[in-house]
Design a binder for these strands. Structure first.
Lengths: 229, 229
DNA sequence: CGCTGTCTTGAACGTCTTCAACCATAGTGG
DNA sequence: CCACTATGGTTGAAGACGTTCAAGACAGCG
């Protein structure tokens, strides 16, 4: 049971009919996870749809080779777990709270019922899936770039397009990513990522700052993506 | 205008209500593309949902660096173009007929209307998107493998899981992929792909045959994915 | 204080790309 | 009919690039 205000603040659920919202409120619950805590593990049976209220969730998969691949980050307002919900299989990946995180848990049967009964819910789910697909396509593109240099540049430029804000000294990218995380996103080793980004720092192309990155020379980054054939 | 039988043979549309099917028949049309012909180009405005009846479609994207990335192959019964349909942007990638191909064209406004009016259509779209997401996640996994060897092995094993059939001499993978295509899927050069696959041929691990590949030693391939840390 | 995690640097090694060449096949036009 | 072209497959050698391993700096935290 959660209150209607919480629901209304989520864009995804903002335009639900009153009865749909009511159903959601009655059956959904909220849960908090401490930083670093697992939300679910790959293979777990999927019982809920998860909607992030606050914090940040990291969806990652451990390959058989022992390599960890970060599939996506989920930020407030976004949901995760749909894929497993629909086909009833276990989760295809792990989800962990990257920060202290509050999520809404919507039981599977309620989700499926709302999907059947409320057309707007179905539409909002489709929109959500499309967003996720765009993100995944972006990841495929990034990973398809030739060198690690291009991959990192492509990754950061893509984020900058979506979330960057103009600030003094260049475009500010308010997303904190450790070198390890970047490595896990571009399919490279930490050391390589560090070497490349140190060089960028020296060349005044990109700097790691308090709460993200500062892109001083976007065209420099773009040139790296384009050149490295 | 197309006939109802054509629609009924497509699993995706098999359980439509009669009136939904009728609407679809009245407004959809069929078009054929010769081998190698473009179906749409990146950036084109998106006017239709495409459903493949026969043939094979290749969805690819040309990166700024000049590298071509194959995002997906679409086989009979599957649809493509949804992503662009929903948000009204241009297509995010190119689609070309890899073989002589027949597709159903469903105009955008009809698609959106059916989506709104028929819950089953919405459900089928969601199921479709989920499949596509699985495919994309798989691509991310493949591209995240360490060496090119692992990436190719992972790619072929994933296909083998979904489409492989047991035959004499091993598991038959009835999917024709040129070395060039494999290269464009795993993010490597043709020469590298050739060298690796020639070695596998000599080692009796995997052979290129008439209409696809024959995996003689699946555990050998799996070992390659797991080992190459 | 020692621990753990992130960031960092260096040097050696191995993989993949690059470039250049070659073969086979199929389709095209003179 | 043959030369010509395009496409797909193939091989070799040189060099660039990324990984690996080993080591150290630094911060936050029990």
């Amino acid at each position: 049971m959660i209150d209607a205000d919480t629901i209304k603040r989520i864009p995804r659920f903002a335009d639900l009919t009153p009865q749909a919202r009511d159903m959601l409120c009655r059956h959904a619950s909220v849960r908090t996870y401490e930083q670093g805590m697992p939300i679910f593990i790959e293979g777990d049976p999927c019982e809920f749809l998860y909607v992030v209220l606050e914090g940040e969730v990291r969806i990652a998969k451990l390959l058989e080779s022992g390599r960890e691949v970060i599939m996506d980050f989920i930020w407030p307002g976004e949901s995760f777990g749909e894929v497993a919900l629909m086909d009833g299989d276990g989760f295809p990946a792990n989800a962990t709270a990257k920060q202290p995180t509050r999520v809404i848990l919507l039981p599977r049967d309620i989700y499926l019922r709302m999907l059947k009964e409320c057309p707007e819910v179905a539409r909002s789910i489709i929109r959500d899936l499309l967003l996720r697909m765009r993100a995944l396509s972006g990841r495929v593109e990034v990973l398809s770039e030739a060198g690690v240099r291009s991959r990192i540049a492509h990754l950061l430029l893509a984020y900058a397009r979506d979330f960057g804000v103009e600030g003094d000294g260049g475009r500010m990218l308010p997303i904190r990513l450790s070198r390890n995380e970047i490595a896990a996103m571009v399919g490279a080793r930490v050391e390589t990522v560090i070497r490349i980004m140190s060089q960028w720092h020296k060349d005044d192309i990109l700097h790691t700052v308090e709460r993200g990155f500062l892109i001083s020379d976007a065209s420099g980054l773009e040139a790296i993506v384009a050149d490295e054939d």
